[in-house]
Design a protein around this nucleic acid. Sequence first.
DNA 1: GTCCATGCAAATGATTTGCAGTATC
DNA 2: GATACTGCAAATCATTTGCATGGAC
Lengths: 157, 157
Amino acid sequence: MEVNGSMGTVSTDEFKELLKSKGLKITSQRLIMLETLGRHPGEHLTAEEIYNLVKTEHPEIGLATVYRTIQVLMELHLIDRVNFDDGVERYELAHSTGSAGAHHHHHLICLGCGKVLEFEEDMLEGLELKIAEKTGFKVTDHEVKLYGYCKECGGKN
Amino acid sequence: MEVNGSMGTVSTDEFKELLKSKGLKITSQRLIMLETLGRHPGEHLTAEEIYNLVKTEHPEIGLATVYRTIQVLMELHLIDRVNFDDGVERYELAHSTGSAGAHHHHHLICLGCGKVLEFEEDMLEGLELKIAEKTGFKVTDHEVKLYGYCKECGGKN
DNA sequence: GTCCATGCAAATGATTTGCAGTATC
DNA sequence: GATACTGCAAATCATTTGCATGGAC
């Protein structure tokens, strides 16, 4: 059931190891959820959307389990929560690959059509250094949302 | 009832003009709400907190009115919504002063104690330019959240 | 066998909405 | 006087929780 032996960020085996190392149990629901997310890379899914996707393969799953599994995956840093101000929390596969947890991306939110684009680039190291210098705050992660108008909607503005 | 003729971003008179220009009515609730927010600059208040503050001066106000006024103030760009992942929306006086809507600040969210610091500095022009070049997306605004550990909590990490 | 995880339904909590009364223009 | 705004209560919607059953170790 794996695609290229991997499900986005981690392989099924790595996931099982992760769960085990945290004293968590390996359940079919958890496996199917990560696998389902892995089949939708780059998407920003709501809990409800994940629920509907998972249900096709595991019809008896409950929405509460999806929420609980989301929490587990968040704690394992396998997914990230994103919020585009539309009243729902969304989740995406964590993009971190190496040990440094790097590979950040920003979200470009179009105020015209609501579309969300991703932009891969991290120019915030300088900023983080400056903050550390000035305030003693040690930055470990960041989230950047850029609002504006996409190419299609830009003409109107 | 004004403090130095201003309430943070706009004066009472500017606010009245703004409302009038949008065909909105000038009500005591709206005036008191902006004034109250002006008395708490730099804070990130929830609707409930604003409600409690306003009630001391205007006890018969309803929470629904606070929510509705928040929407009005957002549309007038007098306040901004911020979300620190604690399940509540928060609002702060818009910092924009000049016509350019500049004067941006970032939020430093401490993962240790939950404290939120502000950091004044905008190094994102370069990033916005690069995005425009590469994707045709026209950035008009942005929100940056930096997670990490404040000076006090930093030792433990 | 123990204990954690699941599914369901009920509970929660923030925000929104309907409506009748009230204030602004 | 017409219309937009308010206050209250009820409704809504996402998310969480309690509890009895089921599955993992």
